[in-house]
Design a binder for these strands. Structure first.
Length: 473
DNA sequence: TCTGGGGTCCTCCCCCTG
DNA sequence: TCTGCAGGGGGAGGACCC
């Protein structure tokens, strides 16, 4: 294998927001600044999606169960994720990159690559460019970010990780070996716990160890694709371009139940999960060819079954029916903790005849179904199972008059007298603790109010500019 | 550290076809 | 007509990422 032609300058930037979700919470809720914040599921099976640096200092990491995280850091404030707010902050961060170049490749909500090869660095060279980019992103979004730069995406990403928190690292071409070789292989993109253990067995712990391995050993241990990839990574070989667009391959939704379900209970939850999957499908073309149902049993073994239709369709009835058939293929011998539905073979070119068959029907609506006969849960909430209370709805209400059962920590509320605030917790006595504050007001006061008697409204999140965001839809 | 939810990509296996 | 083989596509599962 021969080395690719590498860029001569460290002109690839990787920008990564620090503890992004938690940072947005701290930016919008002044009382949380400097304090441990955990963002994630608050139910018995919730996990940490993001932890502020104050929480990380006490041993909390993302993907940890929320229960363990609370034990590790009892004084942490726990809130549910508010993706609409994070998306708005994300757009600000991305805009800082797009002001410099069109060659921006978002990797996720909080990180992106940019090819700055067209820029002419000033007297401070590429480190000056990186610092300016970081300052620009912080100024636009108001949350801390880190920037890494190198002559490849590989090095830029590792550099931004090294720059955290709130720093800048630029790896010059002649410094690449000194930067890469001492690194643990586990920190490389694509090396998870399983691959790391396999490599450990052949004595490979660092990138330097990796470089000592021949290609055929790596492909034997890790498979063709991963082995070849690591052989190149160990040498810093990476000439991948910054890709501005990426085609979406699948869309879906899954839900872990608060208690395990048995037999018919699982099928009863399928419409609600399918409904959520439809909402995601709508955003990505609306039509799909393959429907996959995923079931995770109490013992954590996971099975999936899929049904492929002759051609992509946006017909919800057909897709729903396919999901039902896929679920029928699963032997529900064990209690079930998770049910998922995903759509693959996405397409915008669905069979239009289906829409034509139902004149006046909204695109994607089931043909021939009279209004109200389509057994879909109302928007925003899932169908309540028979034993509501034992099972949680798949999604809770996030707008309208606050009820005690909708009082989830972290949601935004508005009170005519006290103004805008956020739910700290729902108390057992039926009242709700709310802290009234915004980024503009500074740290606010916590009050305990009774939603049965007080006119408290659940409202949308604010964006970085302090304006309320429209309802996601 | 006892494991969410959104994804992508890879590998293996099976079946079909030429 | 049967057999062997290669290649492609689909299905299932797993590893990985944020």
């Amino acid at each position: 294998m021969t080395a690719p032609r590498m860029r001569p300058e460290p002109s690839i930037a990787h920008l990564d927001a620090d503890a992004f979700f938690a940072s947005v919470e701290q930016a919008q809720r002044p009382s949380l600044r400097g304090r441990p914040v955990l963002v994630g599921g608050t139910g018995p099976r919730g996990v940490v999606a993001a932890a502020s640096y104050e929480a990380r200092a006490e041993g909390v990491r993302s993907a940890m169960s929320m229960e363990s995280a609370r034990r590790a850091c009892p004084r942490a404030t726990v809130v549910v994720p508010r993706f609409d707010a994070y998306s708005a902050f994300s757009e600000r961060i991305m805009s800082a990159l797009r002001e410099l170049t069109d060659a921006v490749e978002p990797l996720s909500i909080d990180e992106a690559f940019a090819d700055l090869g067209a820029l002419r660095p000033g007297p401070d060279g590429w480190p000056g460019v990186a610092r300016a980019l970081r300052e620009r992103a912080v100024e636009r979004a108001g949350v801390p970010v880190s920037v890494g730069m190198g002559r490849s995406k590989l090095v830029a990403k590792l550099a931004s990780a090294a720059a955290k928190p709130a720093g800048v690292v630029v790896v010059a071409p002649d410094e690449e070996d000194a930067f890469l070789l001492p690194m643990r292989v586990r920190s490389l993109w694509g090396v998870g716990p399983v691959s790391a253990e396999r490599l450990e067995k052949i004595g490979v712990r660092t990138v330097e160890d990796l470089r000592g391995q021949p290609l055929d050993t790596l492909t034997m241990v890790l498979g063709e694709a991963a082995g070849t990839n690591l052989f190149r990574v160990a040498r810093g070989w990476d000439d991948r371009p910054v890709a501005e667009t990426r085609e979406r391959k699948s869309a879906g939704a899954e839900h872990t139940f608060e208690r395990d379900l048995h037999g018919a209970e699982v099928a009863a939850q399928l419409p609600a999960v399918t409904h959520q999957a439809f909402a995601r499908l709508e955003r990505h073309g609306g039509a799909a060819r393959t429907v996959t149902v995923k079931v995770r049993f109490a013992g954590f073994t996971t099975v999936s079954r899929s049904v492929t239709l002759p051609s992509p369709t946006a017909d919800r009835a057909a897709l729903r029916e396919a999901a039902g058939r896929a679920l029928d293929l699963v032997e529900l011998t064990e209690p079930v903790r998770l049910l998922g539905v995903s759509f693959h073979g996405l397409s915008e070119h669905a069979q239009l005849m289906l829409d034509l068959a139902a004149p006046g029907a909204a695109p994607g609506a089931a043909p021939g179904a009279a209004p109200g006969t389509d057994a879909e849960p109302p928007a925003g909430t899932a169908a309540e199972p028979d034993d509501a209370g034992a099972l949680r709805p798949v999604a809770r209400r996030r707008r309208g008059r606050l009820r005690h059962e909708d009082a989830v920590p972290g949601l935004d509320v508005q009170h005519p007298e006290h103004g805008r605030g956020w739910i700290v917790r729902a108390r057992d006595d039926g009242r709700v603790a709310i802290r009234f504050e915004t980024a503009a007001t500074g740290p606010g006061r916590q009050r305990v109010l009774d939603p049965a008697t007080e006119p408290i409204e659940l409202v949308g999140a604010l964006g970085p500019d302090g304006q309320e965001l429209p309802e996601a839809g």
